[in-house]
Amino acid sequence: MPKKSVKKKNLSGPVDIRTGTGEGWLYSDIVKDHFFNPRNFMHYGEEEKFRYNAMGRVGSPACGDEMVLWLDIDKKTEKIKDCRWRTFGCGSAIASTSVLSEMLKEKDGMKIEDALKLKPQDILARLGGLPERKVHCSVLGDKALQAAVNDYFRRTGQHGRIVTAGSKVIDKTLNITDHDIEEAVLEGAQTLEDVQKKLKVGAGDPSSIPAIEELIRFYAEKYYGE
């Protein structure tokens, strides 16, 4: 499987792979700190007490990552006053969510307008980078944030501001979205070859194949899993 697409040189700070001496850690010290001391996560029993007006859930344990994000957004200033999260996933997924929660809360809260502009790369930079094949773990935070903010718009009746999720362009050359892949799986496509036959994906942009395979798996499990 080809490496994930984010390039090391786009990241500030080192991308730490295990060192030759065996002493180094797989992740940067920041990742390690957030992993072992996660900030702002929703403790057991806190669900009833925590005041929030936005909630977003993305991913699925079948994919290896699932994340829920709760936000308390000030209606006047549209700043994120407080947030909580829960994440199922590996070290980098947990650390990414923890660091994201810190970014949202600091300097008396990020404006949702700015929050929506956050990119996975921003989270990566704050973490001091992640090993290349772990980069996909940090993408979820950005999606959960989008989902939570949409939820806020819904709850406050600002339907016009909702950014439609789930139509992410996967293959730029052929302009194929994840919805198209979902449809193909629903129509019975089970393998990359099947989906390629139906949509001609991958033919346009070979680098999109890993993402497509992941989506096929995800939708196959979602609709046909035991």
Binding site: F41, Y44, R57, P61, E66, R86, T87, F88, I94
Partner: peptide, 15 residues
């Protein structure tokens, strides 16, 4: 588990 949003035992795959 406290950090995790997943509660498999309570939801699906009862078998």
């Amino acid at each position: 588990r406290e950090i995790s949003p997943v509660r498999l035992a309570k939801t699906k795959h009862a078998q």
